[in-house]
Design a protein around this nucleic acid. Structure first.
Length: 289
DNA sequence: CACTTGACCTGTCCGC
DNA sequence: TGCGGACAGGTCAAGT
């Protein structure tokens, strides 16, 4: 999925839906998705109550009364969908969708609550994971030690943004903005959208970006991701929120997946190129190499 | 060290 | 319709 706005949307939905619920059982079909042992499940999950749902970078943290947390990364195709009551719908029924018919073949982890409701972790490509970690150990895991600051925090200023990029002076701005150790949460969609907003070609070297351009990029990263949170995130392919609903930011996207269409600013045809191995969308007129 | 390139998986889409 | 290849919201380990 899932970049910062999508993960934030899932977090907000889960917060409303599962805080206060007590876990009955947790099951997984693959150790790859959920490596913890049945003994861990029995000791730290069964009977534990959900006390908080948080987000850091693209990671969801579900804190439990056992002083452990479920730490979840959705990677490319992960979903966390809450279902109050499992029902089955026939093919052709309006609810004959992923959401209406969970669990399905992409379901990797199932969390059952004592009230009969469920939380499903679905992940077609199996890159994502769910891990049980002692809550106070979370800051010590490799990912958390490495990850950069949250760009939407009120006290994260332009000067902080510029400072973070100094560690990646020699690479392209696209590689740097996608680097989670520089700033947290930006992925392929919002990298393209914010670089278009700031009129910066993604293949430009970080060292060539002016202070004024960085200031603009900082503002674009924040405004684009805040807008997306307002729209419930982007459903490019299979992202859904905690209620199984799609996000609508793609209706507002300026360049992402809009190759062949007109640039909303100048009318030039948007093209898709490849930068650091990622599909990249630009207006060749607004974003000069 | 800084940086780039594959690998991890499954599914879908596009061209022949 | 079938089949091969490219590609997909992300991160790592292993290269140069």
């Amino acid at each position: 999925m899932p970049e910062l706005p999508e993960v934030e949307t899932v977090k907000r939905g889960l917060f409303k839906l599962i805080v206060g619920k007590t876990i009955h059982a947790v099951a997984s079909d693959t150790a790859r998705s959920f490596p913890n042992s049945p003994a861990d499940v029995e000791q730290f999950l069964a009977g534990a109550k959900i006390i908080d749902v948080r987000r850091r970078a693209k990671v969801i943290l579900i804190d439990l009364s056992s002083k452990y947390s479920l730490v979840i990364h959705l990677k490319m195709t992960g979903q966390l969908v809450f279902v109050d009551k499992v029902e089955r719908f026939a093919a052709g029924h309006p609810n004959d969708s992923l959401v209406g018919n969970l669990p399905d073949k992409s379901t990797r982890v199932t969390i059952d609550f004592i009230d009969g409701s469920h939380l499903f972790f679905n992940d077609q490509r199996k890159f994502g994971w769910v891990r049980l970690i002692a809550t106070d150990e979370i800051p010590n895991i490799d990912f958390m030690k490495r990850v950069g600051p949250e760009p939407l925090e009120a006290d994260f200023m332009t000067k902080d943004f510029i400072e973070r990029f100094k560690r990646r002076i020699g690479t392209t701005i696209k590689a740097a903005i996608l680097d989670q150790s520089v700033i947290a949460g930006v992925g392929n969609i919002y990298a393209d959208e914010s670089l278009w907003g700031a009129k910066i070609h993604p293949a430009r070297k970080v060292g060539s970006i002016s202070k004024l351009e960085f200031k603009k990029l900082y503002e674009e990263v924040r405004s684009v991701m805040n807008l997306s949170i307002d729209k419930g995130g982007s459903t490019n392919r299979n992202y859904v929120n905690a209620e199984g609903k799609k996000g609508s930011y793609m209706d507002f996207a300026k360049v992402f997946r809009r190759e062949g269409l007109e640039c909303p600013r100048c009318g030039t045809e948007i093209v898709k190129i490849r930068v650091v191995g990622r599909g990249t969308h630009i207006c060749p007129n607004c974003q000069k190499g």
